[in-house]
């Protein structure tokens, strides 16, 4: 409880909306570049790393709720729990960031697998197995082999998510290396990165 209170400083609270905006802006940039990734959780991972798992969870959840209530991406609410888990994982694997970076990258893969497991039932049972994006092509391939809807969405997640989250964790790694030490030291979990 004490630790959670320490994580939510004013700096953390200011960082969270900026991270949400990073999620949106980078997500749209990736669509513009037509890359087969989402990269819509860079901000969430950044907050998880710098301000702990609970701040990461809040960032992910609110990201998705903001997308829904503003009407930009109204279907996002259904995946809010996935976004929260991504923030939590970033916070938990943050301790490996400095000493054993390979464990941090492995954390990216673990996050991807967990995200795939958690998001598949949502697309299968709420949205009929599709997300209205290019990723549905992969769902179609699985369906063509005779797989059930839930198996197909799970298969699509396992194909896409680990790579996406691995690249996300890698980009966050590179960005944090580029940030001045003076700035990083102000965050509640600065011991993760300095």
């Amino acid at each position: 409880m004490e630790r959670i209170k320490k994580d939510f400083t004013t700096l953390t609270l200011v960082m969270i909306p900026v991270a949400i905006a990073i999620n949106v802006a980078v997500g749209q940039l990736v669509i513009l570049l037509k890359l087969p990734l989402y990269l819509d959780s860079i901000g969430t991972v950044l907050v998880g790393l710098l301000a702990g798992p609970w701040a990461g969870a809040i960032t992910g959840t609110i990201s998705n709720l903001v997308w829904s209530i503003t009407g930009l991406f109204p279907q996002a609410w259904a995946w809010a729990h996935v976004a929260a888990i991504i923030g939590i994982f970033a916070g938990l694997f943050g301790r490996f960031f400095k000493r054993t970076p390979w464990l941090w990258f492995a954390g990216g893969l673990a996050t991807g697998i967990t995200a795939a497991l958690l998001s598949a039932p949502v697309s299968a049972y709420i949205y009929g197995g599709v997300t209205g994006t290019g990723q549905d092509f992969i769902v179609g391939l699985f369906r063509a082999t005779g797989a059930s809807i839930i198996e197909s969405t799970l298969g699509q997640g396992i194909v896409s998510d680990p790579l996406d989250k691995f690249v996300t964790f890698l980009l966050v790694f590179l960005v944090v290396l580029g940030l001045p030490r003076r700035f990083l030291l102000r965050f509640p979990r600065s011991e993760n990165v300095t």
């Binding site: 400083t9 004013t10 700096l11 609270l13 200011v14 960082m15 900026v18 905006a21 990073i22 802006a25 980078v26 940039l29 990736v30 570049l33 037509k34 890359l35 860079i42 950044l46 980009l171 590179l174 960005v175 580029g178 940030l179 700035f183 102000r186």
Partner: peptide, 27 residues
């Protein structure tokens, strides 16, 4: 296209983080 990613993301994220601290002090 993948190689264009970092030159676009880097400036976007780094510049946006820079004013976080001032905002916190102002609040």
């Amino acid at each position: 296209r993948a190689r264009a990613l970092l030159p676009l993301l880097g400036p976007l994220i780094l510049s946006s983080l820079m004013d976080v601290e001032e905002r916190a002090i102002a609040l």
